[in-house]
């Protein structure tokens, strides 16, 4: 029998509004198993604002405070302050945002909250574009991607913003990447983040979007796994901004990941070569930071 750290108890109901194969849904299900019932979620505008369901229903068994697009982190900090004044130190407050609410419109309040070291966990479930509005590019969208605002030959020519570097630069106690294809690792990181009370903890979760990426829904986990196996989305942790730990090392070529996704199918050989060089250089940099 396979031993796993994943609890049987679930806090997500089957009747939610996610698309088939939604990585964001898998991420939430696993995260809540790690966090438990004493959790308050703060959700800005993003896919999860819809997935959680309309009034008067809820797809989750923990309280949700929905907030505006730009304000996930700071609203969560306000919730934390209110709980602190009520003497509730047990509840974990989690901001749960997409890449738009993290990399783009949400970055000011995230940076402000991280600089103040607000006692929250900020989770970015990253599907690499504005999926809820119909697949528009964000600053998380990787080089080479076709979206509805980077169409045709205007596919995205700039690179994905390095959010982990930005968060590490805030010297927060804990920042980690996680991937829905590595559930034990993901759950372990959420449990670790939960236990590290007192400051800002950031978890960057790779979350496949079959709808926006042009992939079959049954490939959701497979492609997520390839992202890490190709070092495109390495799994690592950063404590206090400087202490790096690498959790996995990939060895597959980027093409294995790129060639099976509709969003990259227009790329030529030289583009793929460019991406491979970028991936290799980034991974080397990461290895240097890990130091072993």
């Amino acid at each position: 029998m396979l031993h796993s750290n994943i609890a049987d108890q679930t806090y997500m109901t089957p009747g939610n509004m996610s698309c088939p194969g939604c990585g964001g849904g898998i991420a939430m299900n696993l995260a809540l198993k790690a966090l438990g019932e004493k959790t308050i979620l703060v959700i800005p505008a993003c896919c999860w604002a819809i997935i959680a369901g309309p009034y008067p229903q809820s797809g989750l068994k923990v309280p949700i405070l929905h907030t505006v697009f730009a304000s996930a982190a700071v609203t969560a900090g306000g919730v934390r302050a209110g709980l602190d004044m009520k003497g509730d130190t047990e509840t974990t407050v989690v901001a749960w945002a997409g890449d738009g609410g993290t990399f783009d419109i949400g970055i000011q309040s995230l940076s402000g909250s991280a600089e103040r070291n607000e006692d929250i966990i900020f989770v970015c479930y990253d599907n690499e574009a504005y999926m809820n509005t119909g697949v528009q590019r964000s600053s998380s969208t990787p080089y080479g991607t076709k979206t509805t605002t980077t169409p045709g030959t205007g596919w995205k020519k700039t690179r994905k913003k390095n959010m982990m570097d930005i968060m590490a630069a805030h010297r927060i106690p804990y920042a980690a990447t996680a991937n829905i294809a590595y559930p034990d690792d993901l759950v372990k990181k959420f449990q670790k983040a939960k236990a590290m009370k007192g400051g800002t903890r950031f978890i960057h979760v790779y979350a496949t979007c079959p709808t926006g990426w042009g992939i079959p829904s049954e490939y959701s986990v497979k492609i997520a796994r390839l992202a890490t196996q190709t070092n495109i989305f390495p799994l690592f942790e950063v404590e206090n901004g400087t202490d790096y730990t690498l959790n996995t090392k990939g060895n597959r070529p980027a093409e294995d990941y790129l060639n099976i996704q509709g969003r990259f199918k227009h790329l030529a050989g030289k583009d793929l070569k460019q991406i491979q060089e970028d991936v290799d250089r980034d991974f080397e940099l990461l290895i240097k930071k890990v130091g072993h």
Partner: peptide, 22 residues
């Protein structure tokens, strides 16, 4: 608790969060 936020947009978001806890 005084929260020295980084913008007025965040000031109101912060008190919305806090007020939601009662």
């Amino acid at each position: 608790k005084f929260i020295p936020v980084e913008s007025e947009h965040s000031a109101m978001a912060s008190v919305v969060g806090a007020a939601s806890t009662g």
